[in-house]
């Protein structure tokens, strides 16, 4: 869908339901609030349906189709009646947008509902740019950042140019491209639990590339990748700050970066770096 098409057919102040995602909910609520701020700034009326938990990916990707279907139905019900469902994650966004209808391939009614639901689901940053027509944000960030393209967002939802476009409008921010930005970081949901050593080697490759850019900040759009990358950088003693891209775009920088000790954060804020 091109941005002009979707922009033309959408309400001026759409009712948007935020799908928080389980990782943002548990680890980093500040990303959820940053998302709300960005959405409201773009003119959306934001609600957070209470009956949400998880998108069902852990079951879906473990071969437990029945559980995945049960959760998908629960999500579709909880998010009925909104113009859009917006997710601060390409991975969960891809699940909602791409995979729900495949789960109900044997039930025409449910497949149709899931298909219709999928069409209303968007990843946060691509929603802001492609649907809401946002081309700049009023944020400021002192530093050099590099950006990792999370796999599902990139390949299932074509999230690539949108975050870069908005980041280019952040005052003070210098964006430097990450070599191999499109290579998987090794998180992979259940993969990092089932094959932790391979996962660890993959994230080591990723953080080596990140450190080599000389950037002081790593941004991405998915909490899974961010926890993985931040955890590896921390373990290896690198002080690259890791944040969800929505935090920087919303100017929501009060909380320490992912994996960053509160003291280090306070110090960094004090010295203005």
């Amino acid at each position: 869908m091109s941005s002009s098409d979707s922009a033309a057919s959408r309400p001026a102040n759409p009712r948007v339901a935020l799908f928080v995602t389980c990782l943002v909910d548990l680890f980093r609520p500040s990303v959820g609030f940053a998302a709300v701020k960005l959405l409201e700034g773009a003119g959306c009326r934001v609600a957070v349906p209470a009956l949400q938990t998880c998108c069902g990916q852990p079951a879906f990707n473990s071969g437990d189709r029945e559980t995945a279907r049960a959760i998908a139905r629960q999500v579709i019900d909880a998010f009925a009646g909104y113009d859009y469902v917006v997710v601060p994650s390409g991975s969960c966004g891809g699940m909602l947008h791409e995979h729900y209808s495949a789960l109900f391939a044997d039930d025409a009614d449910l497949a149709a509902r899931a298909g219709d639901f999928g069409k209303r689901c968007h990843e946060l940053i691509s929603f802001l740019v492609d649907v809401m027509g946002v081309s700049a944000v009023a944020a400021r960030y002192a530093g050099t950042a590099t950006y990792h393209d999370s796999c599902s967002g990139l390949r299932e939802l074509s999230v690539k140019a949108q975050p870069r476009r908005l980041l280019a409008s952040v005052a003070g921010l210098k964006l430097t491209e990450l070599p191999g930005a499109e290579v998987c970081c090794g998180f992979g949901g259940t993969f990092c639990v089932k094959y932790p050593e391979i996962s660890d080697r993959m994230v080591a490759d990723k953080t080596r590339d990140i450190v080599a850019t000389g950037a002081d900040t790593l941004l991405a759009g998915d909490m899974g990748c961010l926890l993985n990358i931040a955890g590896k950088l921390r373990r290896d003693g690198h002080r690259v700050r890791v944040r969800h891209v929505a935090e920087v775009l919303a100017g929501a920088l009060d909380e320490p970066a992912i994996g960053e000790p509160a003291t280090e954060h306070a110090q960094a804020r004090h010295t203005g770096v």
Binding site: V20, V193, D200, G231, R235
Partner: peptide, 22 residues
């Protein structure tokens, strides 16, 4: 989370879930 923390740290949650804070 033994597999995870073999080679990397596990970042700390901010302390309150989004839904409670919301």
């Amino acid at each position: 989370a033994g597999g995870w923390t073999l080679g990397r740290d596990m970042p700390t949650p901010q302390g309150e879930t989004f839904h409670r804070a919301w």
